[in-house]
Design a protein around this nucleic acid. Structure first.
Length: 416
DNA sequence: TGCAAGTCAATATA
DNA sequence: TATATTGACTTGCA
């Protein structure tokens, strides 16, 4: 895996944003039910956009997938089962609970802080994005979309994060520009390829990849801070948090905690402190919107991307805790965030691969059962008919012969 | 040892 | 059928 390729999106974590603390604080610690109006906005925007071929095929696949929930634990392809099977003694293996067992500890994002101001990184990150966003990430996702791979994404984190925020952060102009802007742009792009009603997964795959190639300039412009750079969520505003024209209070996904006193736990965990904090509410809203947009069931996303249960994901999406209150749960939000940063085709390819494997297993099982039942019924009917005809003919011949002989003998004797 | 965080699986609900 | 809720459990920390 090419570390730089995988980190292009992560690098976008650095932007001129701040944490929308008011929104975060509006949540009760655990079960405040206020998915609320802002989420509705995302959903409305999602509904306004026509679906791409990828979307329709995803929905088709998912609709036809049947009871995938019961199949999620099947030992599928190694790449698919790896996320949760490779966990140390945890819930999936021995029945005991282990918090975050599938998750490997990530190097703190903040650990890149020492490189952050390095002018060298600042000048070179454009090239890194060029290679990573187009080809590198593709290679990654085809083969290692599982969570360990995702975790591995974070090891090059340190290197590629550097300097990202400097060029990107000024582009972050609005919260919608972060998340929904991305959604809209990509949606429109994909729509150009998906207006012919593709029903098959393969065609969808092709379209998605074609669209990705066609959108290469778009991705590049994202990385280079072009007009579409607002698509990328803002990251911590280490360098541009003070931009006068870009207030930070409009829902950044990532925000700097520079302005707030670091908690004791953060001081313990990171010498440099946690430089960026994910706007969990924003991430939750965007994930919700994306899942709805692509008709991705929570169960699939939770299992495949987060290695969590559907209930956990649902709770996190509906009741995101403020970043400052999260502990190990930050990892889950990081994964959501990372997923959001990936190009659509990467997201979908992972899920699609998963579904295709599932469908193959499902169909094989279904066909085997169907054929066995069909053949048994067919054979039973065939044999019954065959035997009945055979027996009737045999008996009739046997009886006729027997009777004729018997009658001839009887008549001969009686005549005498 | 108690508490909070995080998660799961079962169940309820839309 | 997908999503929301809930109780029970593990883990980590003070």
């Amino acid at each position: 895996m090419n570390p730089e390729m995988t980190m292009d999106s992560i690098g976008n974590l650095h932007g001129g944003l701040s944490h929308d603390q008011d929104l975060m604080n509006s949540h009760s610690p655990h079960h405040t039910r206020n998915a609320g109006a802002s989420l509705r906005l995302h959903q409305d925007l999602a509904a306004a956009s026509s679906r791409s071929a990828m979307v329709s095929s995803m929905a088709t696949i998912l609709d036809g997938a049947g009871d995938y929930r019961t199949e999620l634990s099947l030992p599928l392809h190694h790449a698919m089962s790896m996320p949760c099977d490779t966990s140390p003694p945890g819930m999936g293996m021995n029945g005991t609970y282990t918090t975050l067992t599938p998750l490997q500890p990530l190097p703190p994002i903040s650990t890149v802080s020492d490189k952050f101001h390095h002018p060298h990184h600042h000048h070179h990150h454009h090239h890194q994005r060029l290679s990573g966003n187009v080809s590198g990430s593709f290679t990654l996702m085809r083969d290692e979309r599982c969570l360990p791979a995702m975790n591995n994404l974070y090891s090059p984190y340190h290197k590629d994060m550097t300097g990202m925020g400097q060029s990107l952060s000024p582009l972050a102009s609005s919260p919608l520009g972060n998340g929904l802007g991305s959604i809209h742009n990509t949606q429109q792009s994909l729509h150009n390829y998906g207006t012919h009603g593709h029903d098959k997964m393969l065609s969808s795959n092709f379209d998605a990849h074609t669209a990705m190639l066609a959108r290469g300039d778009q991705h590049l412009s994202r990385g280079l801070g072009g007009p579409t750079a607002g698509m990328m969520p803002h990251l911590n505003g280490m360098h541009h948090s003070g931009h006068p024209g870009h207030p930070q209070s409009h829902g950044p996904v990532l925000a700097s905690n520079r302005d707030r006193p670091p908690s004791s736990s953060e001081q313990q965990g990171n010498n440099s402190g946690q430089l960026e904090e994910i706007n969990t509410k924003e991430v939750a809203q965007r994930i919700t919107a994306e899942l709805k947009r692509y008709s991705i069931p929570q169960a699939i996303f939770a299992q495949r991307v987060l290695c969590r249960s559907q209930g956990t994901l649902s709770d996190l999406l509906r009741n995101p805790k403020p970043w400052s209150k999260l502990k190990s749960g930050r990892e889950t939000f990081r994964r959501m965030w990372k997923w959001l940063q990936e190009p659509e085709f990467q997201r979908m390819s992972a899920l699609r691969l998963y579904l295709s494997i599932y469908l193959s297993i499902y169909l094989s099982i279904y066909l085997s059962i169907y054929l066995s039942i069909y053949l048994s019924i067919y054979l039973s009917i065939y044999l019954s008919i065959y035997l009945s005809i055979y027996l009737s003919i045999y008996l009739s011949i046997y009886l006729s012969i027997y009777l004729s002989i018997y009658l001839s003998i009887y008549l001969s004797t009686s005549h005498c």
